[in-house]
Write a protein that binds this DNA or RNA. Sequence first.
RNA 1: GGCAGCGUAGCUCAGUUGGUAAGAGCGCCGGAUUCAUAACCCGGAGGUCGGCGGUUCAAGUCCGCCCGCUGCUACCA
Length: 520
Amino acid sequence: MPSKPSFYITTAIAYPNGVPHMGHAYEAIATDCIARFKRLDGYDVRFLTGTDEHGIKMLQTAQKAGLTPRQLLERNVPRFQAMGEAFNLSNDDFIRTTEERHKKASQAIWERMAARGDIYKSTYSGWYSVRDEAYYAEEETTVNEQHVRLGPQGTPVEWVEEESYFFRLSAYQQKLLDHYAANPGFIMPEARRNEVVSFVSGGLQDLSISRTTFDWGIPVPGDPAHIMYVWVDALTNYITALGYPDTEADLFKRFWPADVHVIGKDIIRFHAVYWPAFLWSAGLEVPKRVFGHGFLFNRGEKMSKSVGNVVDPFGLVDTYGVDAVRYFFLREVSFGQDGSYSHESIVNRMNADLANDLGNLAQRSLSMIAKNLDGVVPEPGPLSAEDEAILALADGMIGKAREAIESQAIHQYLAAVWAVVAEANRYFAAAAPWALRKTDPKRMETVLWTTAEVIRQVAILAQPVMPASAGKMLDLILVPEAERGFDRLGGGFRLPGGTVIPAPTGVFPRYVEPEAPAAG
RNA sequence: GGCAGCGUAGCUCAGUUGGUAAGAGCGCCGGAUUCAUAACCCGGAGGUCGGCGGUUCAAGUCCGCCCGCUGCUACCA
């Protein structure tokens, strides 16, 4: 049997020293949408997400709470996993960097890099704040009137020299630049690529990749006084989950190199500079694409505890429903750019696009089949130019959607689908099947079938964004599970007539503001 | 300071290589309709396309300068 093409997509692993916020959920649903799209489009998909559980901040947060790091993780990681459930993620695995498999993988990649001669022991020096337990770059520090050098938190810093292992990042500068030039799609969007190219062109310094001042991390092989510094540990998760260091394992052979790492724009450098260098050093292939998405802003302002506008993702799901929230963020925000949201914008989107346009179109057309044709899906008669036109538009959706998803333009894929929904409403209003009921019932049947066929294709294409709602819509027209893949789109397949469908029920309810408790 | 990008209708934004592109969605106003989730459909609203100056038969669309905003980066010892 012919094997499916493979597709490996990941989110960044979240740092669970706090609870998940909407930014975590956003990255996850965008990645999930692409993963689901590819599955429906016939790919063998692997979708990975997880948590990054080591590092000094985890240790500090735990200490402040009077907990051990493991206790903190026991408290917080389930929240991230619950977020995955709440947002209906379809991840195939959930990697935790405290897992044994990850320790093995991280130590293995370290040893490969060392064997290559890219790791050496030297002295790491820098400005260290005892109070912050953190190192700062020179430019992050300031000198006050008393000639005391201060870190960004306003705490005094001192010059500290610490033994550390270094990675020979500087040796990879030209190879990275060559790779960027030869693979313009490696870093996306383009603005992010320009920044990285500019940064690398400016010269690369070797990277300190171990610490001795705390022990919440993976021990360096052969030198347990050192633990690996954050990025070697964290980035390796993408291959840990494929069974590394067993590069002959089925998962690894099928899915490495990854097709897309979806990450926030703030960690582009680690993924587009450090990660490929590590991989080359270890003799592995580099991912095909690193996509840096933007940030979300609440009413145009960055979410922050001090401003008091931090939005709980679970609360959004409770208020609007998971599919509406998924649709809103994926349709409203140009993927790759920053986005803004508010109660008003979410309600507007879900009412206009989902309830009024798609939900109402399904309701008005399918209810006519139920009421006038005893629920029997009609067979179309001769197709008019109008019928042909709207069907051609519906058949064209999958091509546009594929093209958009190839470049992670999720919003464009959705815009293409909803443009057809809008046109279908115009078609339906112009054809006025309710008027044809008495004048030309046969023609009415053709209009209703045509509309139902458009709904079928729209619903199939809406599954990646709104799995549950789209599925419910397909249930309304009795599309079998096996016929919901993208191979059923594009005109090579049509909604069969003759089946008896149930009376439709609303798939996308309008959001109505709750009544004020005490009007008056 | 350097590099990059942006500044188009109230809001969010599209606008190939310069010539029916001044557009879409939302909001707003008017109309129509009642199959439908008070939804859908039709029409309108007139924005110096940040400013100035150029190139051109013709410029949001190219060039220069200026203003404002954003990102990356450097420096400010």
